[in-house]
Simulated scan of single mutants.
Amino acid sequence: MTMQTGSIADQVGRLKAAMAGQAPAEVLAVFEAEQAELNAAGVPVAAAAPGTRLPDVELISAEGALVSLHTVTGGRPAVIVFYRGAWCPYCNIALKTYQDQLLPGLTERGATLVAVSPQKPDGSLTMQQKHALEFPVLSDPGNVLAGSLGIVTAPTTDAREAQARFGVDLTTENADGTHRVPMPTVVVTDADHILRWIDIHPDYTARSEPAAVLAALDAAQ
């Protein structure tokens, strides 16, 4: 598997440039308008703050087994990545980069890496196998965990129609049959499941860089 090189921002920039030459301009304009709207709204005022204890919610593994969050993190410091789904190109860039550039540093520090999305387990399995991910990729049906952090959103009607142009229907991708997705977010928790750092990106094309996550974990410890 080819290692992902460069920052996430650089890789996203290259993806956007490629899409500009391939996708219909009117479709890209819809997504750009949605991103601008999300940026203008900013981080939700009700989003969780450091000091919040994450609930021990029931998640589903890529193989379809029920697992609890606290069991998965194993009583260790953890980095939990909330992403939209395997259908999202920006999520693919982020998770592959975390495998290559973040996971080694977390392993050295004795911390766990977990990725969570509202998609069905088969979507999680697709993501895990596609990028040879060596960390748990879990489903959060109904965005229960994401909802506890106040980071759930949904695409606009225009964006849903534009997604359909690419063959994406979130009601069939998501475990609960809705369009609801988390804002791309990375959190750092301690061994007691207390939130120590949270980085929310309303614009889903932006993501937390590995170096920033490692610095936050070091500060938390």
Score class of each variant (00 low, 15 high):
residue 18 A to V: 00
residue 42 G to C: 05
residue 57 V to W: 13
residue 210 P to R: 12
residue 96 K to R: 11
residue 94 A to W: 02
residue 111 A to N: 02
residue 144 V to S: 06
residue 120 K to E: 14
residue 213 V to D: 07
residue 128 Q to M: 14
residue 95 L to G: 00
residue 128 Q to H: 08
residue 123 G to A: 14
residue 126 T to Y: 11
residue 110 G to N: 06
residue 30 V to M: 08
residue 154 A to K: 13
residue 89 P to E: 07
residue 53 R to V: 15
residue 182 P to G: 13
residue 164 A to P: 05
residue 39 N to K: 12
residue 219 A to C: 03
residue 101 Q to V: 10
residue 158 D to R: 10
residue 76 R to A: 12
residue 207 R to K: 10
residue 45 V to P: 02
residue 130 K to Q: 09
residue 20 A to L: 05
residue 219 A to W: 03
residue 30 V to A: 05
residue 48 A to S: 15
residue 131 H to I: 00
residue 78 A to Q: 00
residue 54 L to W: 02
residue 29 A to K: 12
residue 163 Q to P: 00
residue 62 A to M: 00
residue 164 A to D: 10
residue 164 A to E: 07
residue 84 R to S: 04
residue 189 T to M: 14
residue 136 P to G: 03
residue 177 G to L: 08
residue 120 K to W: 00
residue 51 G to H: 06
residue 63 E to S: 15
residue 193 H to E: 14
residue 12 V to W: 06
residue 157 T to C: 02
residue 65 A to G: 04
residue 148 S to D: 07
residue 118 P to F: 04
residue 82 F to L: 09
residue 11 Q to E: 05
residue 190 D to M: 09
residue 179 H to K: 05
residue 23 A to W: 11
residue 30 V to P: 09
residue 102 L to F: 05
residue 193 H to N: 13
residue 54 L to T: 08
residue 105 G to A: 08
residue 6 G to R: 01
residue 115 A to Q: 01
residue 182 P to V: 10
residue 87 W to Y: 09
residue 70 H to A: 12
residue 49 A to M: 11
residue 59 L to P: 10
residue 208 S to A: 15
residue 8 I to A: 00
residue 92 N to M: 03
residue 114 V to P: 06
residue 24 P to C: 14
residue 146 A to T: 02
residue 34 E to V: 06
residue 123 G to L: 03
residue 97 T to C: 09
residue 139 S to I: 01
residue 143 N to E: 07
residue 7 S to E: 13
residue 6 G to Q: 01
residue 61 S to H: 10
residue 65 A to N: 10
residue 47 A to F: 14
residue 187 V to G: 05
residue 161 E to Q: 11
residue 195 L to V: 15
residue 10 D to M: 02
residue 140 D to M: 02
residue 56 D to C: 15
residue 123 G to W: 04
residue 138 L to H: 00
residue 213 V to Y: 02
residue 107 T to Y: 01
residue 116 V to I: 09
residue 23 A to P: 13
residue 112 T to S: 04
residue 159 A to P: 14
residue 78 A to R: 00
residue 173 E to T: 07
residue 142 G to L: 13
residue 85 G to D: 12
residue 138 L to K: 09
residue 86 A to T: 10
residue 5 T to E: 03
residue 27 V to M: 15
residue 43 V to C: 08
residue 220 A to S: 13
residue 173 E to R: 09
residue 121 P to L: 13
residue 97 T to A: 15
residue 66 L to D: 06
residue 64 G to S: 14
residue 140 D to E: 03
